[in-house]
Nucleic acid binder design. Structure first.
Length: 928
RNA sequence: GGGCGAUUAACUCAGCGGCUAGAGUGCCUCCCCUACACGGAGGAAGUCGGGGGUUCGAAUCCCUCAUCGCCCACCA
């Protein structure tokens, strides 16, 4: 065949090379960059211009941290979102996938602070707040888009013109508006509470930002002398009023003890309740109180109460009016309340205190214990509960509509089970500590007058200006910043312009699909729902939910089933995989392997499947491109010339229905699997092979239909594959478009638009479901497989054309085999064959059974039939079992009475087939 | 202590009331036939974690146990 020129689209792409030179191996790296910029240039990532009655479809990206680096979880989620948005775009929606990043207060500050120290040996305090914040901005300007670059490598079709950042000026305005509203409603309050304190980052963190990590630790038993008891007798056995032993894992907190609690029902301590103890080392007198929260089982039954540094003790202290003593500096060192231990880091203080107590004979014993230690997500340091002044948001009133959202069905989780997790959290929600003692973040828009009366304001209040309420001069703004989630919870609408009621907000809110990791259902998802209902009060309640579907994607694990993490060093770098296998392969593999929210174990080799599939599509398309010369039909079912044309179109139709339905319902792996099977098993393994002789023949008048069908199937397949493997399909689409353009024959879907991305989703127009064609093809496939089996088992290769006798008791089978003799002969490499109702097996023939068809193949006498006989026997056994099973059912009166009549009928039919097959098998096993 | 997942071929998983339980990888045999050897053809390989129950019928629904994993929870 004469090579033809191939160019790719309007843009000068480097792939304009001779078609025959298209490499047989798909090399994604050659195309991805160019294709991506073509997409951007086409404007296709932006939603279509608004028209009346348009359908919009919106996805907001879960904004990754500006400091972030793309990991497999991002890649998976990016693939999911891109597949969904590309599909909806092709279906005609005005589709928007809005990208952006999160300023991620603590994480970002920590990164820049570390860098500052490494490079200049300075701390943030050394250079001051303004200079430090400036440094962070510089860092963001330089590195902030790195992760979004990585999303581009994946092929993400985000509308970059609408890119947002949670700390940009517009977002600040939205954050301030939301805070002031909550303040004015009385939902925001300030107070001294016990909060989770991160001693490394020196800030409060919320409950949701800590992780309880099981650790081996020591449980220390410490004796607290009863006031008045003789010190000399402390070492003696027995506790008769001499001392009370308490157990603790954190002995250093004793410096802040203001009581000891026992259970009122505990006989051991009944007489001691109300008495006074002398706290060792600090010599403070503290009471023994009765509190029902104390277990008589654990430890000694007596609990030291440290209201300043333990949440449970805080409650107990509150119930009994015990004073609160803070013993820690913000950096975790012991403060002036710690007597001789002042200035020591808490870990050192623990050792010193234990040593001292031991010397004093007050350390009764030490036990090993396994318990949970709260660790800060960000700094990985041990959290110290500490009392401090913080801002809180009342969550109960915000939670109510968010609970209603799922109960009314306005919000649906996928998989559904996460609904419960979401509800459990909302129903037991605690107030949200939103102030952070950081410098990087939205500063709390609260100002104080000289008396410390706070006021929240939408506009900055100058120092010295009058307080709006007290009229006294403003003296300072609150120094703290807001938790980063206090901006990201506004993401679905602040990104569209809120608090202004913009056109975008009207068009794209509510969004349809949110896909995210399970870890942030509380941190982010639930809060966005609350924010949507709370702040979008210009909308009726049923239009406020920020998204219709919340997809909770799989967690990506390593090959051993461990979570991928930076610290464990077991992560697989998605970019590395893209470099190696191509973005299409990475996406496709990920989706193929991931069933909804089921965790997925990953190793680099597993991306090979996606690559091999890309390569298969590439080569199948090459085949079509190589065979376009000559007249061609439109590829509709009506123009189909042969059984295989009607069959592949029918399969295409079934595939289209299944894939469309799966994508509509977010079952991406079903869609991917369906396409995989269709492309590989139906199209490549059968159709291409059958159609080859027609294309090569100069005289075959069915060649135009073959070409037409090939193009039609390829066209629709590329379209359906496009959301999954966008680069591959786009480059092939261009190649096809170019080639067809030259040949001058119009084709549905071709020539409309240059970009597949902007093309339309197949509708199945002109393509008929054809059950009969499918059944007939099945017969042919079974027969061909049977002949192939004979060859393989008797070691007779395809080069040797064979002569066969085919016995088919059924009229339909005989008709098909007679009519499609050329196809069967081609596929099975048969010289010729005869078809009849029944043959007696001639000498020197091997036999195969395909359902209710017998094939006798002339092989000669020197062929070894042993393996063939073994396979037949085995098969016979299997069919025999099948018949036994069917008999059991059919002889069961209950089955006949109660099962669906169709099922019974089906079972009868199946049994009849099996009986026929078994008869043949047995006859031939005996004959061999 | 609660809740949720998982347990199916050597490996990774799909199937979730009714076909003789499937796929990919790996394994064995044969084949470079002009899309693809990162390919093609064929084969071997599973008492569906154990035990009960419901049902005409269970890998699939219910109970229970076991193992692994995740989440939530103030036991010092």
């Amino acid at each position: 065949m004469r090579p033809r020129a191939l160019t790719c689209g309007a843009a000068p792409v480097e792939v304009s090379r001779e078609i025959m030179e298209l490499p047989t191996r798909f090399t994604p790296a050659d195309f991805e960059k160019q294709i991506y910029s073509d997409w951007v240039a086409s404007g296709g990532f932006q939603p279509k211009s608004p028209v009346h009655g348009e359908k919009t479809y919106t996805i907001m990206i879960p904004p990754p941290n500006v400091t972030g680096v793309l990991h497999m979880g991002h890649a998976l989620n990016g693939a999911i979102q891109d597949i969904v948005i590309r599909h909806r775009r092709m279906c005609g929606f005005s589709a928007l996938w809005l990208p952006g990043t999160d300023h991620a207060g603590i994480a970002t500050q920590a990164v820049v602070e570390r860098k500052l120290f490494e490079e200049e040996k300075k701390t943030r305090k050394d250079i001051g707040r303004d200079a430090f914040v400036k440094r962070i901005w510089e860092w963001c300007d330089k590195h902030g888009d790195y992760i979004l670059e990585q999303y581009r490598r994946l092929g993400s079709s985000c509308d970059w013109s609408r890119k947002r950042f949670t700390f940009e000026p517009h977002m600040s305005r939205a954050v301030r508006e939301s805070f002031v509203r909550l303040f004015e409603k009385g939902y925001v309050y300030r107070g001294a509470r016990l909060v989770n304190w991160d001693c490394v980052l020196e800030t409060a963190v919320s409950d949701d930002e800590i992780e309880n990590v099981p650790r081996k630790d020591k449980l220390y038993y410490i004796r607290y002398p009863v006031k008045g008891a003789a010190a000399a007798r402390l070492g003696a056995a027995g506790e008769n009023g001499e001392y009370v032993t308490v157990a603790t894992t954190r002995p250093e907190t004793m410096l802040g003890d203001t009581g000891v609690a026992v259970n009122g029902d505990d006989e051991r301590y009944k007489g001691l309740i109300g008495k006074t103890l002398v706290l060792p080392l600090v010599e403070r007198e503290i009471p023994i109180i009765a509190d029902e929260s104390v277990s008589t089982e654990f430890g000694t039954g007596a609990v030291k109460v440290t209201p300043g540094h333990d949440p449970a003790d805080y409650e107990r202290g509150a119930r009994h009016n015990l004073p609160i003593i803070n013993i820690l500096e913000k950096n975790g060192r012991i403060n002036q309340n710690g007597g001789e231990f002042v200035g020591m880091p808490r870990e050192k203080a623990r050792e010193a205190i234990v040593k001292k107590l031991d010397e004093l004979g007050l350390l009764a014993k030490v036990e090993d214990i396994q318990h949970n230690v709260p660790i800060s997500d960000r700094s990985k340091s041990v959290i110290e509960p500490m009392v401090s002044e913080q801002w809180f948001v009342k969550m109960k009133p915000l939670a109510a509509p968010a609970i209603r959202a799922v109960k009314s069905g306005a919000l649906k989780f996928r998989p559904e089970r996460w609904t419960k997790v979401y509800l459990d959290w909302l129903e037991n929600v605690h107030d949200w500590c939103i102030s952070r003692q950081l410098w990087w973040g939205h500063q709390i828009p609260v100002w104080y007058d000289e008396d410390g009366v706070p006021v929240a304001s939408r506009t900055d209040l100058a120092i010295g200006s009058p307080h709006p309420l007290t009229k006294k001069p403003i003296v300072r703004q609150d120094e703290d910043v807001l938790d980063t989630w206090a901006s990201s919870w506004l993401w679905p609408f602040a990104t569209l312009g809120w608090p202004d009621i913009t056109d975008d907000l009207g068009r794209f809110y509510q969004t349809q699909f949110l896909s995210t990791a399970r870890e942030i259902i509380y941190l982010w998802v639930a809060r966005m729902v609350m924010a949507g209902y709370e702040f979008l009060d210009h909308l009726p309640e049923d239009q406020r939910c920020p998204f219709e579907v919340c997809n909770v994607h799989a967690t990506v694990l390593d090959a051993k089933g461990r979570r991928m993490s930076k610290s464990a060093g077991n992560g697989i770098d998605p970019i590395e995989m893209i470099d190696k296998f191509g973005a299409d392969a990475v996406r496709y593999s990920l989706i193929l392997l991931t069933k909804e929210g089921q965790d997925v174990k990953l190793s680099p080799e597993r991306f090979d499947q996606g690559f091999r599939f890309s390569n298969k599509v590439w080569n199948a398309a090459r085949f079509v491109l190589l065979n376009l010369e000559g007249p061609r039909t439109d590829g509709s079912s009506k123009s189909a010339a042969r059984l295989e044309d009607r069959w592949i179109l029918s399969r295409l139709d079934a595939t289209r229905r299944e894939v469309s339905n799966a994508l509509d319902t977010y079952q991406l792996n079903i869609a991917a699997t369906t396409l995989y099977r269709f492309v590989w098993n139906d199209f490549c393994d059968w159709y291409l092979e059958i159609v080859k002789p027609r294309l090569l023949s100069k005289t075959d008048d069915s060649a135009p239909a073959a070409r037409g069908t090939l193009v039609r199937v390829l066209t629709d397949t590329l379209a359906m594959l496009h959301p999954f493997t966008p680069f591959l399909t786009e480059i092939l689409w261009k190649a096809l478009h170019e080639t067809l353009g030259q040949s001058g024959v119009g084709q549905r879907g071709i020539g409309q638009r240059p970009m597949l991305m902007n093309s339309t989703w197949p509708t199945g127009e002109d393509i008929a479901h054809d059950e009969r064609a499918e059944a007939e093809m099945q017969t042919i496939q079974d027969l061909v497989a049977a002949v192939r089996r004979v060859r393989n088992l008797t070691m007779v290769g395809e080069r040797q054309r064979l002569v066969a006798l085919i016995a088919a008791p059924r009229e339909v089978d005989r008709a098909v085999l007679k009519e499609h003799s050329a196809t069967v002969r081609g596929l099975a490499f048969l010289e010729s064959y005869e078809v009849d109702t029944r043959f007696d097996r001639p000498k020197g023939t091997a036999v195969a059974v395909a359902g209710a068809i017998e094939v006798f193949v002339h092989l000669g006498d020197d062929v070894d039939f042993v393996k063939l006989g073994d396979v037949l026997k085995k098969r016979a056994e299997k069919v025999r079992q099948g018949i036994t099973g069917a008999d059991a059912k059919l002889s069961n009166q209950g089955f006949l009475d109660r099962a669906d009549p169709d099922v019974v009928e089906e079972e009868r039919g199946r049994r009849a087939d099996m009986v026929l097959e078994l008869e043949m098998l047995e006859r031939n096993v005996a004959g061999l």
